[in-house]
Design a binder for these strands. Sequence first.
DNA 1: CTGTTTGTTTGCCG
DNA 2: TCGGCAAACAAACA
Length: 276
Amino acid sequence: MPELPEVEGFKKYFDQTSLGATITQVEVLDDKVIRQDTEAFVKDLAGQKMVASERIGKYIFVSLGSGKVWVVHFGMTGRFKFVQNQVDQPEYTRVLFHLDQGYLAYECPRKFGRLRIADSIEAFREEKKLSKDMIKMTWEEFQENLKGRSAAIKTTLLDQKVCAGVGNWIADEVLFQAKIHPLVRVHELDEAQQKQIFAKLKEIIQFAIEKEANYDEYPRYYMVHRRGWTDLEPAYCEQCSEDTEYIKVGGRGTYLCPDCQILPQKEQLEEKELSS
DNA sequence: CTGTTTGTTTGCCG
DNA sequence: TCGGCAAACAAACA
């Protein structure tokens, strides 16, 4: 689930239910999701007041009274759930945070999520080389982040050092709407194409946040509906046949329109065939 | 049983 | 030292 728009929703949910509360106890039900020494993690959180929260990319940073920071990542299936009574905690709760009022459950069925403590947001960002959040990134910064890269554009968009917050469906959606094939190398893109990608990143992410990551409310022409995540009937543009191509790019399932998104090499081949 | 998954980390290679 | 790349991680689901 969680790409940038979902995590933005999780942050709002956290702010409404838990921000300002004090953690009285940390109940670790499965320490697979804790990416450090569990005892130290629990010790750093117990008794702390959660004084502020900030989202960067797919991370939420919760500042503690001690000055340290609780770092939350949701992997592929994580989420927060606040409950008044302990018995109401979700089935796949991996860590249950006892607050002075109620309980904050961190649920994560597939255990790809990760929790830890960092000295500061900046220290963590530096450690991971995490880029600025995609929503706040400027065109100049985006251009700078692409510099010197030669991998496939889709792989690069998924790199959190380049575009913090972008995930698999957003990368596909951006490239579809920008009419660029996901396998095109970054250095093969001209400035107009880079600008188009940047504009689409902003537009699509902003729109998804406004719709609170509710896929059913995205326009029918969005590529995302061809993934079968919604019941919506996809709409096709005039140049689109109803074919959707499915390939692997950097090991990730990738959907594209073979009519709108053409590889330069393929274009050249087709021109040759026509002239011969 | 097989294949797939909205994400990141790790280790190897050039 | 860095970027690219593929495998690894874990478990649910079709």
